[in-house]
Simulated assay, not measured.
Amino acid sequence: MKKSILSCIMICLMALFTVNIGFAQEKTSEFEVLGNCNGCKKRIEKAASAVEGFLL
């Protein structure tokens, strides 16, 4: 009896954590970067694209 109650509690906790992971929110930010020339623009975009999760 004690094992079945403990098992039920563990299953409920695992389900709760699984639901929380599924509802993770994405964070977005916008900012302006001024590149004076085309070379600067390409350099900035190349550096930014190396950052994981960054979209141009």
Rank of each mutant, 00 (worst) to 15 (best):
L34H: 06
L56C: 04
K41I: 07
G35L: 03
G35I: 01
F54Q: 03
S7Q: 12
I21R: 01
S7D: 12
G39W: 01
S29E: 06
V51Q: 10
M14G: 13
A15C: 14
G53S: 02
C40W: 01
G39H: 02
K27R: 03
E30L: 05
V19W: 02
I9F: 02
C40Y: 02
T28L: 05
V33S: 13
Q25M: 04
K27I: 13
S49P: 00
E32T: 08
V33A: 15
T28P: 00
L6R: 11
E45Q: 04
K41E: 12
E45S: 02
G53W: 02
K27Y: 09
N20W: 06
A50T: 10
G39P: 00
C8A: 14
S7H: 10
S29N: 07
M1T: 05
G35T: 00
I11T: 14
C12L: 14
N20L: 13
A50M: 10
N36L: 08
E52C: 05
T18Y: 12
C37T: 13
L34T: 04
K3P: 00
F17R: 05
C37E: 07
I5V: 15
S29Y: 09
A50H: 04
A15N: 11
E26G: 01
I11C: 08
I9V: 08
F17C: 13
L16K: 07
I9N: 01
T28R: 06
I21W: 02
M14A: 15
G53Y: 00
M1H: 03
C37H: 06
A15Y: 04
K2R: 14
E52Y: 06
A50W: 07
A48D: 03
T28D: 02
F54L: 11
G53E: 01
C12F: 10
A48H: 01
C8L: 12
E30I: 05
Q25E: 09
L56T: 07
C40E: 04
K3C: 03
S7I: 09
T18G: 14
E32S: 07
A50S: 08
F17M: 14
G22Q: 02
A15W: 10
K2V: 06
I5Q: 15
L16N: 08
Q25Y: 06
S29C: 07
S7N: 15
E26T: 10
A15M: 15
C37N: 15
I21P: 00
E30S: 09
S49T: 10
